[in-house]
Write a protein that binds this DNA or RNA. Structure first.
Length: 435
RNA sequence: GGAGAGCUGGCCGAGUGGUCGAAGGCGCCUGACUCGAAAUCAGGUGUACGGGCAACUGUACCGUGGGUUCGACUCCCACGCUCUCCGCCA
């Protein structure tokens, strides 16, 4: 959320920064301007009225002690003043609620260093690690490999839940569990604290990180009197964990890693990535979250990117890093790097991690602050990044480590987590005939 | 799910209609004393929004939201959360 004070102080400046996101962002902000002016008027009026009321009440208090009759008489005249205060309060509350509702729909302005662009074609490659493995045969996509190996299963999943769900079996299931443990172990060794958060959260929590109110159609929601939402990423509960808190100076940065399943409605993605593991309603992810000071968030952002890349380096997975352009960034982010891993079976680099600096955009919504050198509370900067998506790591391993005979080598770093397994070979599981 | 108790400042805790941002204590900061520290003494110590170049200053905030009242931490209603006991349960 934008700072109303900043919007009022320099409307044109804020507008110019927002314009890099496109006209829709500017249009979202426009109606705030007249409301802010009205809010200021009401604030001044209300303070004046309250001061009058306070003074009048003081007089009555004294009167009641000395001359009860006169006091009773004075009471009657104050009714109007009390009503006026209530009226002003009501209108101010209404105006503030409208401003709030509008500001919640305005995206975070991009940092200066973010390149301009309308969509993913404007993204900028900033680095790459490793190279495309020389397979020497026509690589298969992971869905063919997974099915042939018997470790990934879609027809049965569709029977249970419909499209965009997968069942992992045998080594396939163990592979996800192994990757999860491996990712967490790497991040913990590099200073992150492990968190296992709730997977269902309130609407308030979803609003704190920016999923609501604008992106409700992307979320799964429970029925009932007090509905809850299924988290689309552990970023949501972990970032909201410190809502309304003030950190003492020196406590920052605070770094968390959290495994969770992620639930996404994938509204609007009809027909895209319908095969395989790429785009599921439910997937697993290890998420990184940091709370940093305003001064250090840029450096922490780079460090988080490196932490996410580290797990891919240890797995020997070829990948590249792109800096997202203004048109491709998420709502809450001021700057985002995507890590794209090479998927030879799809002949494409596919996103496996997204590392964002939200600056104070989320912190303002959830009031997470820290004391600066002067002892005054300041908003934290929040950062989040995948470290990394587990299902997509399975995809990359299957596709990059596939062999001509259809087996898949296990990256060395992962073998201790799989009981020393060096190679995934076809497995058979009991199966009846469908009738 | 049922019954009871409670929710006040960083923490503990007083306050049952008016002078309460709120007693007292703890913690923390500053100063005095000390070679230094402890102890002791004195002073200070919240957040938000607004006004002022600034020193400063106004208003609000006692779980949340309503209501009663000239005036609510204090009375009424609803909700949330915590704790204890009972039931159920992986």
């Amino acid at each position: 959320m934008l700072d109303l004070k900043a919007v009022v102080a320099d409307y044109e400046g804020v507008e110019r920064k927002l314009a890099r996101r496109g006209v829709a962002a500017v249009d979202a902000l426009a109606p705030v301007k007249p409301l802010a002016a009205r809010r200021r008027e009401l604030n001044l009026l209300l303070e004046k009225q309250k001061k009058e009321q306070g003074e009048a009440n003081g007089r009555i208090r004294e009167l009641m002690k000395t001359d009860k009759a006169a006091g009773e008489k004075a009471r009657a005249g104050l009714r109007a003043l009390g009503d006026a205060v209530k009226g002003s309060e009501a209108e101010l509350g209404e105006v503030e609620a409208r401003i709030q509702a509008l500001l919640l729909l305005v995206p975070n302005p991009p940092q200066e260093s973010v390149p301009a662009g309308a969509d993913e074609h404007g993204n900028l490659q900033v680095s790459a690690w490793g190279e495309k493995p020389a397979l020497g045969f026509a690589p298969k996509p992971h869905w063919e490999l997974g099915e042939a190996l018997g470790i990934l299963e879609w027809p049965q999943a569709a029977k249970l839940s419909g499209s965009r769900f997968t069942i992992s079996k045998g080594v396939g299931a163990r592979l996800e569990r192994a990757l999860t443990a491996f990712f967490i172990d790497v991040h913990v060794s590099r200073g992150y604290t492990e968190i296992l958060p709730p997977y269902l959260v309130s609407g308030e929590t979803m609003t704190g990180t920016g999923q609501l109110p604008k992106f409700e159609e992307d979320l799964f929601k429970t029925d009932g009197a007090s509905p809850l939402y299924l988290i689309p990423t552990a970023e949501v509960p972990v970032t909201n964990m410190h809502r309304d808190e003030i950190f003492e100076a020196g406590a920052l940065p605070i770094s968390y890693c959290a495994f969770s399943p992620c639930f996404r409605a994938e509204a609007g993605a009809a027909g895209r990535d319908t095969r395989g593991l790429m785009r599921q309603h439910q997937f697993h992810k290890v998420e990184l979250v940091k709370f940093a000071s305003a001064e250090s968030s840029g450096a922490e952002h780079d460090r988080m990117l490196d932490d996410a890349c580290e797990v891919l380096r240890r797995l020997g997975l070829h990948h590249r890093v792109v800096l997202l352009c203004t048109g491709d960034m998420g709502f809450s982010s001021s700057k985002t790097y995507d890590i794209e891993v090479w998927c030879p079976g799809q002949d494409a680099y596919r996103e496996i991690s997204s590392v964002s600096n939200c600056e104070d955009f989320q912190a303002r919504r959830i009031k997470v602050r820290y004391r600066g050198a002067d002892g005054k509370p300041r908003l934290c900067h929040t950062l989040n990044g995948s470290g990394v998506a587990v299902g997509r790591a399975v995809v990359a391993i299957l596709e990059q480590y596939q062999q001509a005979d259809g087996t898949v080598l296990v990256p060395e770093a992962l073998r201790p987590y799989l009981g020393g397994l060096e190679r995934i070979v076809a497995q058979k599981f009991p199966r009846g005939v469908e009738r």
